[in-house]
């Protein structure tokens, strides 16, 4: 693979391409007393089914807004966000979110938190089957033992695992993660990255994930979307990450391309789109 093909210039896809998940001329602004405040402007991006895409950019660049357009919590001011050709109008379990603060219900046990999601999506399934799905996914993230604990009795890393198990248990078409490992210590973070990658390899759902960590993106993603600074942020560059899967952290870090890509991303973030006020 030649490095010139790795770095795509801003997406030059034709506007009529219907991808699995696509942003077509998407702009989003919020009304303020001083008139509309543009957050995103002219975002074009097509994501294929089963792709793992990471988003990176400085705080305030509208990454979370971009994700909330996919999860359906917000609507684009102009342009369209479509999943399998259908415009996204409201939140739904086919685009499940792993929230930044885990968003587990503190008055329900780990098991009940996941069960609530499974039961909401398949209310008519037999009870035994729903419970089996919950157990299977808790086992997948290594939390069988903690099933009857409440969220405040387990660690942050375990909570994030529950949140991921809850999200995957309902078989979403798109998994949306908003900086899922930001609050975790380095070791827990690496463990969870590996688990997430393994689960994704087995399930192959489409993943859209915000991160602040370039190494995390290089380890996980097929493509890294780098965003320009707000207001009126857009996609600055999309970097394809060429490492073969399954990936091994040590192995890819020995690859000379790794540093080339890493430096390129760093250059984007800290030179070309340096944040002026921090």
């Amino acid at each position: 693979m030649q490095s010139t093909t790795l770095l795509q210039s801003p997406p030059a896809q034709s506007r009529n391409t219907v991808g699995f998940l696509s942003f077509d001329q998407v702009s989003k602004s919020f009304p303020t007393p001083k008139g509309p405040y543009p957050v995103l402007e002219n975002v074009n991006l097509t994501i294929e089914e089963g792709e793992f895409v990471c988003l990176i950019g400085h705080s305030g660049c509208g990454k979370s807004t971009l994700l909330s357009l996919v999860s359906g919590f917000q609507q684009a001011t102009s342009g369209s966000v479509t999943l399998k050709g259908e415009p996204i109008r409201e939140p739904g379990p086919d685009r499940m979110v792993v929230f930044q603060n885990y968003a587990l219900l503190p008055w329900r046990t780990v098991f009940e938190n996941v069960y609530l999601a499974v039961n909401a999506v398949w209310p008519k399934q037999p009870e035994a089957q729903k419970r089996a799905i919950v157990r299977e996914h808790l086992a997948m993230v290594g939390l069988t033992e903690a099933a009857d604990k409440r969220p405040d009795q387990i660690s942050g890393g375990m909570r994030q695992r529950v949140s991921i198990a809850r999200a995957l248990a309902i078989r979403p078409e798109v998994l949306i993660l908003d900086e899922p490992f930001g609050a975790l210590d380095a070791i827990t973070k690496e463990e969870l990255q590996e688990e997430l990658l393994k689960i994704w390899t087995d399930h192959r759902c489409t993943v859209l994930m915000i991160t602040h960590d370039i190494d995390e993106a290089l380890f996980l993603a097929d493509r890294l979307v780098m965003m320009t600074n707000g207001p009126a942020a857009g996609i600055g560059e999309v970097m394809t990450i060429p490492f073969d899967r399954p990936r091994d952290r040590v192995q890819i870090m020995e690859d000379p391309q790794y540093y080339e890509l890493r430096n390129h991303a760093l250059d984007f973030l800290y030179n070309r789109f340096a944040h002026d006020d921090d």
Partner: peptide, 21 residues
């Protein structure tokens, strides 16, 4: 807001929302 968002994304039934959230 987080709990309401969970309820929205899961499209919890009214009964489930009242009892669990």
């Amino acid at each position: 807001e987080d709990y309401n968002n969970v309820a929205k994304v899961l499209k919890l039934s009214r009964k489930d929302y009242y009892l669990n959230v």
